[in-house]
Design a protein around this nucleic acid. Structure first.
Lengths: 93, 93, 93, 93
DNA sequence: CAAGAATTATGAACCC
DNA sequence: GGGTTCATAATTCTTG
């Protein structure tokens, strides 16, 4: 059971509620929640750009597709290399 | 049809390639891709914090659950917990 | 709130514990759990075949890759067509 | 599929091309793909049941949670609930 | 058992 | 606004 943070505390500052390192926990949660806030803000910004694109007459769905394809392209190159490797191995080379 | 940006450009600055407002398109894509980069970086940071939490002895799965709960409205949390309880009783659990 | 099944019961057979249609719930859960059992069994069978393949001298990782590629190929054909379409539209054709 | 170059057979039973026991390989792949088909069909059936549950007024998300809980060992369920509780108290929630 | 891939589930966005 | 598809998150499984 992952109770190290619960069970091993000793000092007065870290050992707070129910034996858990409450301060530490709070810190972690705060940091995560702040970063998630920022993430959400970025998502919103991106949405705005798509809206702008739409009102400029671009087809948003096609735009998303372009972005997706550009993102996948490097992965696909790698996939091709892997495939080549598979063939090599299948042929015992 | 959402092809205004394809069909209506006129000035020399808009650099029409095959009828597309290519510069405008490029700009939009650049901005989106940059923001998505930032998003990815934040996701990575968050992952790091969970790793840190884990090595401090916290149960990551429970931590995620906690974050999820904090994100919901309290009323909604209550509702789901109640419903789960109802179902459990119905099954005699 | 999704409480139809909780709140609308009337007949003695369907209205059991805590007002929920307990029998109905049990039935659904049973069916799901049975199907998941079967799924698990199949997963186990598949694992066995990989083990067999391995002891026959095949490289399991490569085998998995082959299966994955065979599965993806039809999807990729379609993807290519979509991509072509995107380019066509971008060029106003 | 793009393995023709690997599989262009010559002799009937052993059929080794480039050192690979092609028939054996084909058999393994067939068996795996068939089982994966069945798996997919079961997944589809399960989806249908959730849809049925939904239209009967059950909360699908809670239903999934319930199934998840039933799959765990009771001790494990207890443990996670306890831990969540501990964390919540630590945060004063 | 830790890292990473692959599957599955949740959440968001779009169309009707 | 409801339902369906699409994108992201999270868990599970595999491999080193």
């Amino acid at each position: 059971m992952a109770l190290d943070a619960v069970a091993t505390s000793a000092s007065p500052e870290t050992d707070k509620v129910g034996g858990v390192a409450a301060d530490r926990l709070r810190g972690l949660i705060d940091r995560i929640e702040r970063l998630e806030e920022e993430r959400k803000a970025l998502a919103s910004d991106i949405k705005d750009i798509y809206a702008e694109a739409k009102s400029a007459g671009f087809d948003v769905k096609v735009l998303r597709q372009l972005i997706r394809i550009r993102k996948q392209e490097p992965a696909e190159v790698e996939e091709q290399e892997t495939l080549l490797d598979v063939y090599r191995r299948a042929l015992g080379m």
